[in-house]
Structures are given as structure tokens and as C-alpha cells.
Simulated assay, not measured.
Amino acid sequence: MHTVWKGSISFGLVNIPVKLHAATEDHDIKLRQLHKACNAPISYKKVCTACNEEVKPDDIVKAYEYTKGKFVVLDAEDLEKLKKENEDKAVEIVDFVKLEEIDPIYFERSYFLAPDKGGGKAYALLRSALDQSDKIGVAKIILRQKEQLAAVRVFKDALVLETIHWPDEVRKVEDVPSVPDAEGVVGKELDVALMLIEQLTTPFDPTKYTDDYRESLMELIEAKKAGEETVTITEREAPAATTATDLMAALQASLEKTGTKKKKAPAKKRAAAKKKQA
């Protein structure tokens, strides 16, 4: 597992040397763009919008656009100095809170924390303390030249660092258009909706969810590799929008449908149950 960062976790006077590893990976299928005439890959050049000339890396500077078309140019030396001043290689835990107090909208990316040399005992201590207290650590970390807010928590046998959006990075709910109030909710409809939720409630098992689009796309790619002339991907029909008049009917139908599914156990489960009885 590739190390993306090395430093330490600190809380109070405790200092734990750690390494950071990406906890997730992107399985999206990357599609390249080709020239239709000859199937050669398309390249992208950095071109100046005024001179219309290709620009070399040495001729590029960084700047902040404070208003449309007006910039403050930042020297490489200034940025490097700022980077060094803030390059503290530590995850500083500043508070301990309950995980449920942080809404998932704040979470950004997950990293595994692994103990570095000599950090095993202190790492295990922090893991046990977090586990038994049912708390997580709110921390600050400098990652990729940017200060990040983060949560340090226990995931199975490891410590995980989750980067968190700053409060001003989360847009205001008040700015979301056309959000209805609760006045239009009918009591009977709510009762049926609650029954439907109850019937669909199950322990979370991430392995039962699959990326159907990615699987279909790979099937298409493999079929084309094998030389098949035509491949048809069955597209799912989007469910029609439910209007207020048929809301109750849709809820009731969903309730009946899920009730039937619950009663009829999957073939594997039925077979397993018969095996146990035998």
C-alpha cells in the first residue's frame, strides 16, 4: 500500500509516528478521446488565450483572480516560503467528539493511518481509547500544501483519518431552491411511508450493492474486443415522477411489493436453512 504522507498524531503530550495510506480507490472506467479519422489519441496543450501560443512550464506563474479579469500574481518564492512555514508533519487532535455529531456532508476522503517505527504501542492505545470512549478525534493536518480539518476514528482494527470540509465549503441549505415545508404532509401517507421504511430496513452490507453501469460498460468493451459487431446494453427505465394524487397509491404498492419480497426468502438462504435443519 503506497504511503502518501509520513508524520505523527499528537494529542496532549502523546506523539505517535504514523504513515498515511489512501483508504479508497477509484474504479471508474477511463475513456480516452481519439481522432475520428485515424484513431490517434488527442493531446492537450497549454495555450495562452492572448498570444495563442503554446506555453512552457517555466513561463507559467500562479495568480488569484480577485475580480473578473484582474489577478494578483503570486511568486514561486512566496508560495514556497508559505509552504515551509505551514509544513508541520503532524495530525494535531484538538477535540474529541461523537461521530454522529458530524453530518456526512462534511466528509471528503478517507485514509488509513498505519503506525510508523516505534509507534505501535501508542497507536494501539489511541485506538482502544477511541473505541471504548465511543469518540472520534477532530484534528488538523497539512496535506498537499493545504490545511485540512479531519476526523480520526476507529475502522475495524485500524485508525482512519477522514478529511472534512471547512464550514464555509458546505453550501447553505437555505440556498437550495424549491424545498417544500412540512405543512403538505398527510398523516396517512406518512404512516404508510414509515411502514415502507420499516419493511426495507436491513443491516448495511456494502457487498450487496454493485455498479451496474460499470459492469455493463466492461461487458460492452469485452464484446467489442472479441469482435462482435453489435452489442445491446439494456437500459433501465427511469421511474416516473410521483404526483401528489397518486402518492398514497405508490406508497401502498411499494409496501405490498416489499412485503412479498420479505416473505419469499432467496434461494441461497432457503437452501442454507434446509441444510441447518438436516
Rank of each mutant, 00 (worst) to 15 (best):
E215A: 15
Y123C: 05
E53C: 07
V170A: 00
A23D: 01
G187K: 14
G184W: 04
E228M: 11
P41K: 04
G12L: 13
E92V: 11
K269G: 06
D131E: 15
K30A: 14
K146F: 08
C38L: 05
Q199C: 10
D88L: 13
I93Y: 00
Y44M: 13
P180R: 07
P104F: 02
E25L: 12
L194P: 03
E54P: 04
Y123G: 01
F112V: 04
Y209R: 03
A278R: 15
P239S: 04
L247M: 14
G119N: 07
G119Q: 07
D58H: 10
E228F: 12
D28Q: 14
Y106K: 08
T24Q: 08
S128C: 05
C38Y: 11
A241M: 14
E25S: 14
Q277S: 15
V97S: 06
A151S: 13
K62R: 13
L251S: 04
Q33S: 06
G118Q: 02
V18N: 11
H35S: 03
P41S: 05
I142H: 09
P203Q: 04
Y213F: 15
L161F: 03
L196R: 00
E101H: 04
A250L: 09
I233W: 02
Q132I: 13
D59V: 00
R144Q: 08
V154W: 03
H2G: 11
A272Q: 14
A122E: 10
G187P: 00
E256L: 06
V97G: 00
D59A: 09
E229Q: 14
T163R: 09
L251Q: 02
A22Q: 15
L247R: 11
Q252W: 02
Y44N: 05
L126K: 09
R153K: 14
L220V: 12
E25K: 10
D205S: 06
L196F: 00
S10F: 09
L159Y: 01
L190R: 08
L20V: 06
M248H: 03
D26V: 00
V4D: 03
E162S: 14
M248G: 03
T49K: 15
H27E: 15
L34Q: 02
K30D: 10
E162L: 08
T202S: 15
F112G: 01
L247Y: 14
C48L: 02
K264S: 10
A238F: 07
G69S: 12
V179N: 00
V154T: 11
E215C: 01
R127W: 09
P17N: 06
V179E: 00
H35P: 06
L31P: 06
T201M: 10
L130M: 04
L190M: 10
L74V: 09
Y64P: 02
G187N: 10
T201C: 12
I141W: 05
T3I: 12
E228S: 11
C51N: 09
D131C: 10
A139T: 10
Y106D: 05
L149C: 04
E229W: 05
K146G: 08
T232C: 08
V231W: 04
P177Y: 01
D28S: 15
A114L: 13
E183A: 13
M218R: 13
S133H: 05
V170M: 02
L126A: 10
K6A: 06
E77I: 11
V73E: 13
I136A: 03
L194I: 14
P180E: 08
V185N: 00
A22T: 11
K84L: 04
E198M: 07
D78L: 02
S254W: 01
F155Y: 07
W5N: 09
L99P: 07
G119I: 09
A158H: 07
D28I: 05
M218C: 00
